[in-house]
């Protein structure tokens, strides 16, 4: 796509499900991303303080700090990195999380399960929008 090899894009993956977290991280690393995967919003917030990411992917339904709270915390911290959320779908009490996430500043919402193409397309779109 590009004539000079671009610096690898840094992605943060936040998901309490280690299977998902690791698989997403693995796919991104395969596709020239530098990926850091953490299992909670708190850890994600901490990671953002230490690193600068090009893209953040976060689960919405998580114990303690959920995805929306995580986004709000990041935006409160002044971090403007484009955020893609993904969620496994509807859980009681979490119906509005996707729209809340958009309202709080997420670029896109994805629904699990995602395949590789969806993931990469979403990242491309999110980067495009936030550019």
């Amino acid at each position: 796509m590009t004539h000079t090899p671009p610096p690898p894009l840094k992605a943060l993956i936040v998901d309490d499900e280690d299977l998902v977290r690791n698989a997403v991280a693995m796919v991104l690393r395969r596709n020239q991303f530098e990926a850091i995967a953490v299992s909670s919003g708190e850890q994600g917030r901490e990671a953002c303080r230490k690193n600068t990411f090009d893209i953040i992917l976060t689960d919405l339904v998580m114990p303690q700090m959920d995805g929306v709270e995580f986004i709000q915390a990041l935006r409160a911290d002044g971090i403007t990195t484009p955020i893609i959320t993904f969620t496994g779908g509807a859980r009681v009490g979490h119906q509005n999380l996707s729209s809340q996430a958009i309202e709080s500043g997420a670029c896109l919402t994805l629904r699990k399960p995602v395949n590789k193409q969806q993931l990469l397309d979403a990242i491309a779109t999110a980067l495009e929008i936030s550019r």
Binding site: E17, V20, A23, R30, A90, R91, V92, P113, V114, K116
Partner: peptide
């Protein structure tokens, strides 16, 4: 509600299967 909650868990489980199998 039950289906939604089951679907959530299912989707979580399917994500690694899809992503890893593709890889």
């Amino acid at each position: 509600q039950v289906a939604g909650s089951l679907a959530h868990d299912f989707n979580n489980l399917l994500s690694p299967i899809l992503l890893v199998s593709e890889m």
